[in-house]
């Protein structure tokens, strides 16, 4: 287990380094820099700005300062509220630096404000996806070939085929305008979360339903299910105790990609429902040339996806005693 985690960590470090250096190089290769083209500045002011963001340093030094863990920037803290004596700094210490666009805010401030919102949205979406997907998949598998199965499979194919913003617009018309049950946009209460969460989770519910159905059918055709019936167990017990665990194993391994997908989908959903989450900040930063924010979110989400994938792999071993992580 420990060896597995260490190996994961090593690959993770490599991945992160690649992501950081590629995006850092791209960001600094842009002609004119992030502050060009907005307002023509007096040379001295421009120099001031460059100095404030350390853009006057050689690029390797900027990179080292950005990555960390040593703080090379004795000035940094002075305009961000620190006292300038920090020894540690940079991404490795969880410090993404100042935002280029939101003056007087660090990327950490912005992420700190918006991430809980996005995380909550993601959790709601995942809950929708799992509850709908697993129950539809089981129902479909148990009624294989029946009308319910056909209807659920059609719905799942539709859910996979239609992008979430199309589904969102239909649902907004339905539940906000025609049958005014839910608020149209904003954030704060449970009602605000239901619809965005649902729209975000639906695609994954469809995939999960498919996976559950296939998994359950596979398991239900196994010999040990017949053994369980031969023991005299009731069908409900057989399905819940013997079949379900094996049937949802594919779903568990899908949770990693699903998390990445939900993070992606949140970009669109947050924009449609005007939710002030990390996703909308990211899209804004991309169009605003707020490179530090864009990079910070990219790195953060890489860490999140990687970490959650590892958690999913660990969870898998708990469910399936046959998996041995050491010899992966």
């Amino acid at each position: 287990m420990l060896r597995f985690l260490l190996r994961r960590l090593l690959w993770f470090a490599i991945t992160l380094l690649v992501v950081m250096s590629v995006s850092f190089t791209l960001m600094h290769s842009v002609k004119g820099g992030p502050f060009d083209n907005e307002r023509t500045l007096h040379p001295s002011i421009e120099a001031n700005i460059k100095a404030r963001y350390n853009l006057d340093w050689p690029i390797w030094r900027q990179f080292l300062d950005y990555v960390g863990p040593l703080n090379l920037n004795e000035k940094r803290a002075t305009f961000l509220g620190g006292d300038g004596s920090d020894v540690w700094g940079g991404v490795m210490t969880g410090d993404f630096g100042p935002s280029y666009r939101y003056r007087d805010f660090t990327v950490n401030d912005i992420i700190g404000q918006s991430l809980p919102i996005s995380a909550l949205l993601g959790v709601v979406a995942m809950m929708w996806a799992l509850s709908l997907g697993v129950s539809a998949g089981i129902a479909s598998a148990l009624r294989r070939g029946g009308k319910l199965d056909l209807a659920l499979r059609l719905a799942a194919t539709g859910g996979i085929a239609l992008p979430n913003f199309v589904i969102a617009s239909f649902l907004i018309i339905l539940f906000v305008f025609w049958i005014p049950l839910l608020p149209v946009a904003g954030w704060g209460t449970l009602q605000h979360m239901l619809l965005p969460g649902f729209c975000l989770g639906l695609v994954f519910a469809a995939y999960i339903a498919r996976l559950t159905r296939t998994g359950m059918l596979e398991v239900l055709s196994q010999d040990y299910i017949r053994t369980a019936y031969a023991k005299g167990l009731a069908p409900r017990t057989v399905i819940l105790r013997h079949a379900l665990k094996g049937g949802i194993l594919p779903v568990v391994s899908y949770l990693g990609p699903a998390t990445a997908g939900i993070l992606t989908g949140s970009l669109v959903i947050e924009r449609i429902f005007f939710i002030p989450g990390t996703g909308s900040h990211f899209v804004n930063s991309a169009t605003n040339r707020d490179y530090t924010l864009a990079m910070g979110v990219t790195i953060l989400y890489t860490v999140l996806v990687y970490g959650l994938n590892t958690v999913v792999d660990l969870a898998y071993t708990l469910l399936d005693p046959r998996i041995d992580l050491e010899n992966e």
Binding site: V19, L26, A260, A286, T287, R289, A294, Y301, T302, V305
Partner: peptide, 15 residues
């Protein structure tokens, strides 16, 4: 595979 690609792509497209 383990990089959330959409974010990198968006970043790339802006650049």
């Amino acid at each position: 595979y383990s990089v959330p690609f959409i974010f990198v792509v968006i970043f790339l497209i802006t650049v």
